[in-house]
Amino acid sequence: MLRYAIKRIGYAVVTLFIVVTVTFFLMRSIPGDPLSHMARALPEQTRANYYAKYGLDKPLFTQYLMYMKNLLRGDLGESVLYPGRSVSETIAKTSPISGLVGGIALAIGFVIGITLGIIAALNKNRWPDYLVMFVAILGTTIPVFVFASLLQYFVSVKLGWLPPSGWGQPRHLVLPIIVLSFGPVASFARYLKSSMLDTLSQDYILTAQAKGLSQRDVILRHALRNSMLPIVTILAGRIVGVFTGAFVVERMFGVPGIGFYYISSINNNDYTMILGTTVFYAALFVIAQLVVDFVYMLVDPRIRIVPESR
């Protein structure tokens, strides 16, 4: 168990290291340097000062070592486009907003998706099942921006119920959360239905029913608990999905989250910002996967036993 945990953490660290290194050299391999478009008009001395400030006058490998050293201290450098704006601070300021929207969306998606999955499994091959599976297929095939545009058009423009975009009031949160939770609803419902059907055919469900437990108890205490295990494995993917979906959703609804800044830094060629945010995203996802792995190990005793019996 402990060995497994150490191994997993080791892999995560190696993965992160590789990602940071590759991203760093990729960004530096772009023709021209990060300052070229603004440094052209500057006097020689000012330009040299700029280069010195960002460490661009040093050899590439020294720059890399410097970047890694600063990274370990949590310093991701300074925005090239807006001098004085630290990348770490921007991330610290914007990521909680994305986390809030994404977290609520994920929680809502989880609850609704699980409920729909149970309904579908209990009504196999009847209309509730078909309805849920139809919604689930729509949820996985309709791109987020299409769904977002449709909602904006019908709910905001046609009906005028909610503002199409903006930030600051709770009602601005409603549409982005609905859009972001659509994907999780679909995938949780699909996965839970199939794992629930699997569980319901097990002998221990028959035993539980034979003991005379109420249908509610059988479903909630025996079937649901065991059906949740496979759900844990898709959780990491869903967290990633919510954050990458936020690239588009935050832009369309004007949510000042990290996805919004990531896309605008890409469109503005703000290299340090792109690099820093990519590193942040990679770290976030690697950690999310790690946590999900450990949670899985905690909730499923079978996994814990297998490595030790070897």
Binding site: A12, I30, V240, F243, T278
Partner: peptide
């Protein structure tokens, strides 16, 4: 498979975005 594990743990869309930035 270790190599694949490393590659797969980086979110797909991030890789695509990054490469389309780098490749200009």
């Amino acid at each position: 498979m270790r190599i694949v594990e490393v590659l797969i743990s980086v979110p797909y869309l991030i890789v695509v975005i990054l490469l389309s930035v780098v490749l200009k």
